[in-house]
Write a protein that binds this DNA or RNA. Structure first.
Length: 534
RNA sequence: GGCCGAUUCGUCUAGCGGUUAGGACAUCGCCCUUUCACGGCGGUAACACGGGUUCGAUUCCCGUAUCGGUCACCA
């Protein structure tokens, strides 16, 4: 911590995570591209970044990687911000929040990247290239036909292409002045072993011959991901890059870039997360799976601005944010305990990057539903009631807040989603218009008629508080007087009141529908149900 | 195809040389209950394969297979 901190830091950084963490504040970033709705896998990446940042007492940044003008989708950035807010991921610095390293939108930082790209050219670590798309295609085709080991722009092929390494300096300058389009490419070394120590996977070695001369700066003047993310991560003081496994193959290239830019000593640590896979079959989770399986893979509903197509969201489907993050957190990570239910604070407390699983995880919506069930039943009735009331009123029923609350209390344990409560409450709002035939046949007998009649007769003069407890007593007294065993006629009683053989607690159901309605339903049953066999 | 990565019940996973291989979802059964659920209890179910290393491998090493990712002026 004290005097030799700088030395200690750079020396131990690559070996000991904890040591460097004690010395430098952790800074992580979530850097999505605004090309559409944020994928649920992206939400998980953001979540792991957030958990790690909070756990380490560090900061979480949000950067928008919009360097591809062609793929820009209006509304996507707002969607990202809202999705993160919804699941409870707080951004300390970045787009939508601000901070000392603004702007946080890469399209607004082009001068910064251009400066660094030119510096690389000046230092002989990159070069200008004028090849057209057709020329590149021709080169790849030629190499493929020649059965070359790799059809790429690299240390071998670059000398046959049109670039500042093969052209005269005057020629290069003249073309640039004439406005001919060009890119800046990395001059990848021919023979070099690039190593990187991934926090989740350990050492990964790649030979530089496998890395091609990646375009760093595109002909439109904007950087590619590779350049932009390194420049920004460095400038913004990022200490840990936590991202999806799809970046692992290009990670050695990034190490090379840090080296060439002279920033290797403060290079962030890398952690590559396993991917989310299709529920069944092969490949990674895609929008198609959502359509096929009838479940969301986006946090929020999204309407495509061009096609108008609507993609469902976890939020709109009725998943609670708590359930969503709990589900996501455990998809690829496990604290090693047997705890399944975690609040955000508990996740933060127990999260460890080193405990992130290495293999991809199949997306299982059933588990998500189970988590939602757990959180729905924990919700206070008052939190669930407004939605019930709203749905009821929208369907043309009058429903007081008190009634909605009672309904929520009665049914929340039976459902996976809040909106299912109203559907389950159908027998409360609607008197039966028909009766379950199987139950009627089996249970509607002479005793049942006698029991229902007796109960009705006991209910009409009843003037106490009409609540489950007193109803229960009234019923049992009536049955005793009539000489009927209560257990024998309960199914019939339920049938008379709800038309169904199954449902929630009957006494509470009666309490909610009220005394008058209860009596009315009993009479209606007596009028409409016939004893088929005695 | 080249390169990189991965591989424990159907699924998510624990395990980090010696375990009756544990938990959760799903599934099945029992109990609870007026019923259906919920809940409780229990059952079925896994170390991809082949070589090593070792007294001993799910665990370490090497192959094979399979799966995943990546090979753009997209991120």
């Amino acid at each position: 911590m004290d005097a030799p901190a700088t030395f200690t830091l750079s020396f131990f950084r690559s070996f000991t995570l904890s040591l460097s963490l004690m010395s430098t504040p952790v800074r992580v970033r979530f850097a999505p591209s605004p090309t559409g709705p944020l994928h649920i896998g992206g939400v998980r990446t953001a979540l792991y970044n957030y958990l790690f940042a909070r756990k380490m007492g560090g900061q979480m940044l949000l950067r928008i990687e919009d360097t591809d003008q062609n793929r820009f989708v209006p509304g996507a950035e707002e969607y990202i911000l809202e999705a993160l807010r919804w699941v409870g991921i707080e951004i300390d610095e970045g787009q939508g929040t601000g901070g000392p390293h603004a702007p946080y939108r890469q399209s607004e930082r082009r001068d910064i990247y251009q400066k660094e790209a030119r510096r690389l050219v000046d230092e002989g670590k990159a070069y200008y290239a004028f090849d057209t798309a057709e020329e590149l295609d021709a080169m790849r085709k030629r190499l493929e036909e020649a059965n070359a080991p790799a059809a790429q722009y690299n240390a071998i092929t670059r000398m046959q292409m049109r670039n500042s390494l093969t052209m005269k300096a005057d020629d290069v300058r003249a073309r640039m002045e004439a406005g001919e389009p060009y890119v800046i490419r990395l001059k990848t070394p021919r023979k070099e072993e690039v190593r990187l120590n991934d926090l989740i996977r350990g050492w990964v070695n790649v030979h530089s011959s496998a890395i091609d001369d990646k375009v760093l700066l595109k002909s439109d003047g904007l950087p590619t991901y590779h350049l932009a993310n390194i420049v920004d991560d460095h400038l913004m003081g990022i200490t840990h890059v936590i991202r999806g496994e799809e970046w692992l193959p290009s990670a050695p290239l990034h190490v090379l870039l840090y080296r060439y830019l002279g920033w290797e000593s403060t290079m962030p640590q890398f952690a590559h997360l396993p991917l989310l896979l299709k529920p069944e079959g092969n490949g990674k989770l895609s929008k198609r799976d959502a359509d096929l399986g009838g479940f969301p893979i986006f946090p929020l509903q999204w309407t495509d601005p061009v096609t108008g197509q609507v993609a469902r969201g976890f939020r709109e489907d009725g998943y609670l944010p708590e359930a969503t993050i709990n589900f996501l957190a455990l998809l690829g990570w496990n604290p090693g305990t047997e705890q399944e239910l975690f609040t955000m604070d508990e996740l933060i407390a127990s999260f460890e990057l080193t405990q992130v699983h290495k293999a991809g995880a199949r997306f299982d919506i059933q588990k998500a539903q189970w988590f939602n069930h757990q959180y729905i039943r924990q919700q206070p009735d008052t939190a669930l009631a407004p939605a019930v009331q709203q749905q009821a009123e929208a369907a043309g029923f009058s429903c007081s807040p008190e009634k909605a609350e009672k309904i929520a209390a009665l049914l929340k344990g039976r459902v996976n989603f809040a909106q299912e409560i109203f559907a389950e409450a159908d027998t409360i709002f609607n008197a039966p218009t028909s009766y379950d035939e199987a139950i009627a046949t089996a249970k509607w007998n002479d005793d049942a008629v006698k029991a229902v009649t007796a109960f009705r007769d006991a209910l009409i003069p009843f003037d106490g508080e009409f609540v489950a407890e007193t109803i229960k007593h009234t019923l049992s007294d009536a049955m005793t007087q009539a000489g009927i065993k209560q257990g024998k006629i309960m199914q019939a009683m339920r049938l008379a009141l709800t038309g169904s053989g199954a449902g929630p607690d009957l006494m509470l159901t009666m309490e909610i529908i009220g005394q008058d309605e209860t009596v009315k339903r009993l009479e209606k049953a007596l009028d409409n149900l016939k004893v088929l066999k005695s």
